[in-house]
Design a protein around this nucleic acid. Structure first.
Length: 495
RNA sequence: GCGGCCGUCGUCUAGCCUGGAAGGACGCUGGCCUUCCGAGCCAGCGGUCCCGGGUUCAAAUCCCGGCGGCCGCACCA
């Protein structure tokens, strides 16, 4: 892929990484040591602030808007949890190693490739070994015998306590929600449909992590699990509010997204229920408010081969970037896989009363990749103006709200500016800066997306006014000092 | 995990082929100057040349191994 587009692609990705490294958004973990494993990243000060604001927007647009309950679960969970969830068995790849050149292969894929026989991933290893032997399948690169048949599980195993009992770092945050469901339902006086949300870390031992924040071994998810009565997924009054909202749906068989209202999507049977249409609308609206242009968002239906082992209906919210379409949110109808599995394995009742009906709730999830979202927001906000970088984040996502600057670095302008900074710093994420020319400082803050700068000049000393300078236009406005806080508050307001 | 390319101050890079004092630009810090968009001047800061081993009088440079990055394949539960 050496086309012009291909080159532009890598340049744009590189621009984001360069900005991130240079200005402290994020950096490789364990960076100063040579044995730093791939797939682990540290967030720096600006990255933390951006992520915090992104999550605050998520709380506002999804959790609060919909009256969801938020929890914060443990990252290490018992082996039994993953036995019941299916991850211990299904979260694995069957692999084998060449006895001579040591290359590692996916056995199921290799058999399929060589013989055309479809091999279920979960087929017994002995069975796979038998097929390989019978069909005389050998190492594709050197022709030697295959050996060391094994399951590679992508969960990180940890030893708990002195005995080192097996437990696992969660590969998805939602298992806490399923395990805790009954207690939350009871103690919070729950009623179906009930949505429980969680923001936190997950861990997957990726074979080959790559592309910065896009595929990590330790990463943030913001997940929402909606528990509902499958017989009543169309009795959903809240959905009326979004019936005219246009989804960008790409059902199986389409090669580009269709603009269809929720109503039309339901009428045409593209989406299976009002409940699902409603949540697809909420998540798409959320990304529009996070600053991703609508025409770069799509909700793509997964065909059966692509779906996770637990999914019965699956839509991915994807965003188009210079690297292609990136999956940011998995919207899965998980059916009763989870509560059913935990009910059976734990012996704990998971059925609840919905009216007079006794029902094992089904689950629709919105599983968001936070770090990937941060990358996409950075990339889509990155603009160039007169050869200079301007990060055009929505103001309410900007890591720094306001920079307070004396026009020149000289008393009494500096003292005056410091007073203003002190008055703003508790309410806002503010910085004070007197280093370098005023133009240099504007550029410095444009580059990290600060939406407004407050500048103290000679006139400020006479009449207690300041100028407010806007990142996106470089225009300035003079306002009275006692209106500054209110003005910034208004400018940073959510849409 | 395989294959190709690659790894030098915070960032970008010169130097590597042909072994011989790690240099520049931007940035950052302090000062002077400066009343609005990367100004100027002065003085500074900043590098385990990815790591380990080998060859050599001498290694950023050559060789081997590892780690990491990008791209392609595979994978993405």
């Amino acid at each position: 892929m050496e086309s012009e587009a291909g080159e532009a692609v890598s340049r744009r990705f590189d621009d984001v990484i360069r900005l991130a490294l240079e200005r402290g958004f994020f950096m490789p973990a364990s960076e100063i040591y040579g044995d730093a494993p791939a797939g682990f990243w540290d967030y720096g000060p600006l990255g933390v602030a951006l992520r915090r604001k992104f999550i605050e927007l998520w709380r506002r647009e999804l959790v609060k808007r919909d009256g969801m309950l938020e929890i914060d679960g443990a990252q290490i969970l018992s082996k039994s949890v993953f036995k019941a969830s299916g991850h211990l068995e299904s979260f694995v790849d069957p692999i084998a190693r060449c006895s001579r050149c040591k290359a590692i292969y996916r056995v199921d894929k290799l058999i399929e490739e060589k013989t055309g026989i479809h091999v279920p991933e979960r087929l017994d290893l002995g069975e796979m070994r038998r097929i390989v032997k019978e069909r005389g399948i050998r190492c594709p690169s050197c022709g030697a015998k295959l050996a060391d048949f094994a399951h590679f599980n992508m969960m990180f195993r940890v030893g708990v306590g002195a005995a080192g009992s097996d437990a696992y770092l969660r590969p998805e945050t939602c298992q806490n929600i399923f395990v805790d469901f009954m207690r939350i339902y009871k103690t919070m006086r729950g009623k179906l449909p009930l949505a429980i949300a969680q923001f936190g870390k997950s861990f997957r031992n990726e074979i080959s992590p790559r592309q910065g924040l896009l595929r990590m071994r330790e990463f943030y998810q913001a997940e929402i699990e909606v528990f509902f009565n499958p017989n009543r997924a169309n009795e959903f009054p809240k959905a009326e509010a979004v019936m005219d909202y246009a989804l960008r749906l790409q059902p199986v068989g389409e090669d580009k997204p269709l603009e269809v209202s929720c109503r039309e999507a339901l009428d045409r049977g593209l989406v299976s229920s009002k409940l699902i249409a409603y949540y697809l609308a909420l998540i798409q609206q959320f990304y529009e408010k996070a600053g991703i242009p609508r025409n770069r968002i799509r909700l793509r239906e997964l065909d059966p081969d692509e779906k996770a082992f637990y999914a019965v209906e699956a839509w991915d919210l994807e965003v188009e970037t210079s690297l292609g379409w990136i999956e940011l949110v998995a919207c899965n109808n998980r059916g009763d896989h989870d509560l059913g599995g935990h009910q059976k394995a734990s012996g704990h009742e998971m059925e609840v009363l919905d009216g007079s009906e006794r029902v094992l709730p089904h689950v629709f999830e919105l599983s968001m990749g936070v770090d990937r979202s941060i990358y996409c927001i950075l990339e889509s906000s990155l603009a160039t103006s007169n050869g200079k970088t301007v990060l055009k984040l929505p103001p309410y996502l900007a890591p720094i709200d306001v920079a307070v600057l004396p026009l020149i670095s000289k008393e009494p302008l500096t003292s005056k500016a410091r007073e203003i900074y002190d008055a703003l710093k508790l309410e806002f994420d503010a910085v004070y800066d007197e280093s370098g020319s005023i133009g240099r400082r504007y550029v410095r803050y444009d580059e990290v997306g600060v939406p407004v700068c407050v500048t103290v000049d000679h006139q400020s000393l006479e009449d207690d006014s300041v100028t407010v300078r806007f990142r996106d236009t470089a225009h300035q406005l003079r306002i009275d000092l006692d209106e500054v806080a209110g003005f910034i508050r208004g400018y940073l307001a959510y849409p």
